[in-house]
Nucleic acid binder design. Structure first.
Length: 492
RNA sequence: GUCCCCUUCGUCUAGAGGCCUAGGACUCCGGGUUUUCAUCCCGGCAACAGGGGUUCGACUCCCCUAGGGGACGCCA
């Protein structure tokens, strides 16, 4: 049987480092075994999935140098590869589960569920559906559903005993069934949840090995049960360790740049990033550290993946990037600089900002240095302002970060409108409000228009600069962060 | 809180019972090459979480404790 792996990102936000990480291992595994690697879009969250995010993910993944044999953009024999286009498939399978009693319809209200959850929490139990609708007569339930009554379909999970599952890296894992929720499989909008869709699709798409993040281990019983109820063989599962922040918590954008766009625009070579990512939990048999994707494929062995959660270390990434840059020939180097930013397409958004302000072409470089390159390091003094105290600056920066994180669209006008609204609710004049942001983004008193600059820099770099500005202001303690968060929430 | 996973230098890791006086890489600190800087080269600091077993012998196997992480959504 041929090896088939997949990566299944959800188009709900910016392309994430973690996606590239998981994709890399799936890719290397499949290629090593001369199998196929599939890209599937898991857009079952109607509220949050966007076509824009999907495009961005495909684009970012292409940038890394990974490619896939089947996917929404390249097609394949097991399509469609977008879950929103497979609703009939899920409906059919849900019916099958309903028919065999493996699943049941649930009409409970959100209020009741919240209530049950609260009580369980108070008793110190794992929260779990209490089985309220489990004993309802299936015909009656079907009737009510036919009459259009809102409901979901839940998985019928046993209340006792233990579930044994196998992880390729960890061996056998036992999880009590009582810990496993009677998971919603079909939402009231008719869309499947991840759990139903992933099992159905992995099976139908012939996925032989699942390499995914460790956060899925606790969902294995649900998946195990679904495979059993369908009478399917479960693929071999390998749970990769989670990338960590320096404090060992799960890598998060609040603490570190996690967007692939950040690494791309900051000038990391994709092959260096992949090389570094490969070292997160995996090593070459000969302990070589600098290698190409091709070399990785040749040597890849899933058994050599370690289970401890690796801390993402920027210092080592930088070193790695330097290694790859120095190995380029002068010609390649010039080409790469061009591909990075010095090309017509990338420079175009800068033209309207810069041309009017230019007398000699050499003026250009100093005007855009902070856009193409890093912004200078900041200190407390940079935030001296006639009407704003450092504490005010902190509030502005913190709230701006929160506001910006909620933004769907990253155009200049949206940025402007959104931050103006924030200034208003904070009751700070726009002129003053802008000042600390100017410094944080550009590191200068005089610079190109703020919102254009932010739009050009992109989310990842802007967030990183605002965060670093916050650090320059003395940082934010845990306690302070809580207070700021509350303050922000109370504004709206 | 409940359940699950994890645990070798600050960080990434090698190590599949004797080869370990625990190796490599990043960072840091010294030194050398170099007009400066960087590169490059050489050297140094630095770890088997703790406690019990098993064994002639444990970093390696088992148990307990501690610590860290994850999951507990009509998100994935």
């Amino acid at each position: 049987m041929s090896v088939r792996t997949r990566v299944a990102p959800s188009p709900t936000g910016d392309p994430h480092l973690g996606t590239a990480y998981v994709a890399l291992f799936n890719f290397a595994f499949a290629r090593q075994r001369e199998g196929q690697f599939v890209l599937r879009i898991e857009d079952t969250d109607r509220a949050r999935s966007t076509a824009m995010a999907e495009t961005a993910i495909l684009d970012a993944l292409r940038w890394t140098g990974l490619d896939w044999d089947e996917g929404p953009d390249v097609g394949g024999a097991h399509g469609p590869y977008r879950q929103s286009e497979r609703l009939d498939v899920y409906r059919e399978h849900a019916e099958q589960l309903l028919g065999s009693g493996a699943a049941f319809r649930c009409f409970c209200t959100k209020e009741r569920l919240d209530d049950v959850r609260r009580q369980q929490q108070a008793r110190g139990e794992t929260t779990r559906y209490d089985g309220h609708c489990l004993d309802m007569d299936p015909d009656e339930a079907a009737d009510r559903a036919d009459r259009g009554e809102a409901h979901v379909v839940r998985l019928n999970v046993p209340g006792t005993g233990v579930c044994r599952v196998e992880d390729g890296l960890r061996g056998e894992i036992e999880i009590p069934w009582a810990q496993t929720d009677m998971q919603v499989l079909v939402k009231s909008d008719g869309f499947p949840t991840y759990h139903l869709a992933v099992v159905v699709d992995d099976h139908l798409m012939g996925i032989s090995h699942v390499l995914r993040g460790e956060e899925w281990i606790s969902s294995m019983p649900k998946h195990r049960l679904l495979y059993d109820r369908f009478g399917w063989q479960m693929p071999v599962h390998y749970h990769l360790p989670l990338l960590r922040n320096p404090d060992h918590s799960k890598l998060s954008k609040r603490r570190n740049p996690t967007g692939l766009d950040y690494y791309r625009s900051t000038g990391y070579l994709p092959e260096a990033l992949l090389n570094y990512l490969a070292l997160m939990g995996w090593s070459m048999p000969d302990e070589r550290e600098v290698f190409s994707l091709t070399e990785m494929i040749e040597a890849f062995d899933i058994e050599r993946v370690s289970t401890g959660g690796p801390v993402f270390d920027f210092a080592k990434l930088d070193w790695m990037n330097g290694q790859h840059i120095r190995r380029l020939s002068p010609d390649e180097f010039m080409d790469r600089v061009g591909v990075w930013a010095l090309n017509r397409e990338a420079l175009a958004p800068l033209v309207p900002l810069v041309q009017q302000r230019t007398e000699r072409l050499s003026d250009l470089v100093s005007q855009v240095d902070y856009l193409l390159g890093d912004r200078r390091p900041l200190s407390m003094e940079d935030f001296n302002h006639k009407r704003l105290e450092p504490a005010d600056c902190k509030r502005i920066l913190d709230h701006a970060i929160r506001r910006l994180d909620d933004l769907q669209d990253w155009s200049r006008d949206t940025l402007h409108d959104s931050l103006r609204a924030l200034a208003e609710v904070m009751d700070i004049g726009m002129r003053d409000f802008i000042a600390p942001l100017f410094i944080a983004v550009s590191g200068r008193a005089v610079s190109l228009p703020l919102f254009d600059a932010m739009s050009y820099l992109g989310r990842g770099r802007v967030r990183a600069r605002l965060r670093s500005a916050l650090e320059a202001l003395g940082g934010v303690s845990k306690k302070e962060a809580k207070r700021l968060e509350r303050g922000y929430r109370e504004l709206w």
